[in-house]
């Protein structure tokens, strides 16, 4: 919401909405802090909620997984161990051939699974998104929807640094795809936008369409 507010504050129409969004973001942060404080005595000592919010081991285990991932990347730098094969490859580096969960960092996970080749392709995708954003930032685009989409993309990027769901779970991947597609939507100069034809389509099998 902070990124959205910053983005929207660059246009006159968006400033009031940005102010409202900033207030909501502050309220949300306060509410989360109050929720954790108020329910601290009722939370289980070992559970997913406390793992995510309160347990220091969560950070330590993430660091351990990252070290393992970097070792796999060093062993397979060019093409990685294969997509979705991170866990299957971890017995090679664990002392007792244990199987580990995916490293909780999407860029490192992609690097481990698809090597530097995969990372380079991801770099091109990111560069495209940044280039689109840079162009719109300079143009002070009046499209108010770009603010929330920019905020969503930044939020998903931050999540990707702490978990692997945008790569390993379809819900996360599709959410990213939707935001990316929306982000690229307004590049009208790059796309021949579909328009409805005034003539009804002829019946029968698909025909060859002209540009």
């Amino acid at each position: 919401m902070t990124v959205s507010a910053i983005w929207m504050s660059r246009t006159g129409v968006g400033r009031p909405i940005a102010g409202l969004g900033s207030g909501l973001a502050l309220c949300a942060a306060i509410m989360i802090a109050l929720f954790v404080w108020a329910t601290r005595d009722h939370l289980p000592t070992r559970g997913e909620l406390t793992d995510l919010l309160l347990r220091p081991d969560g950070a330590a285990e993430r660091v351990g997984l990252i070290r393992g991932a970097l070792r796999l990347l060093a062993d397979h730098p060019l093409a990685g161990v294969g997509a979705r094969n991170f866990s299957g490859a971890t017995p090679a580096i664990t002392p007792d051939r244990a199987v580990l969960d995916s490293v909780h960092n999407v860029p490192i996970l992609i690097g481990t699974e698809l090597g530097l080749t995969g990372l380079a392709l991801v770099g091109v995708v990111v560069a495209v998104l940044v280039a689109v954003g840079r162009r719109r930032w300079k143009a002070r685009s009046p499209n108010l929807w770009q603010g929330p989409v920019a905020g969503g993309l930044v939020a998903l990027t931050l999540i990707s640094l702490l978990d692997h769901y945008p790569w390993s779970v379809p819900q996360g991947g599709l959410l990213g795809a939707w935001l990316v597609g929306w982000w690229l939507t307004d590049d009208s100069s790059d796309v021949q936008q579909p328009q409805l034809s005034t003539q009804p389509a002829p019946p029968g099998p698909s025909a060859t369409h002209s540009a």
Binding site: V81, G82, A83, R84, N85, G88, E113, V122
Partner: peptide, 22 residues
């Protein structure tokens, strides 16, 4: 680039321990 990434993921089945996953 994105479709190449998908293609690379599928192609990695050639050297992955679990080809089906790739």
């Amino acid at each position: 680039s994105a479709f190449l990434l998908a293609g690379l993921a599928a192609a990695s089945s050639l050297w992955a321990f679990y080809p089906g996953l790739a």
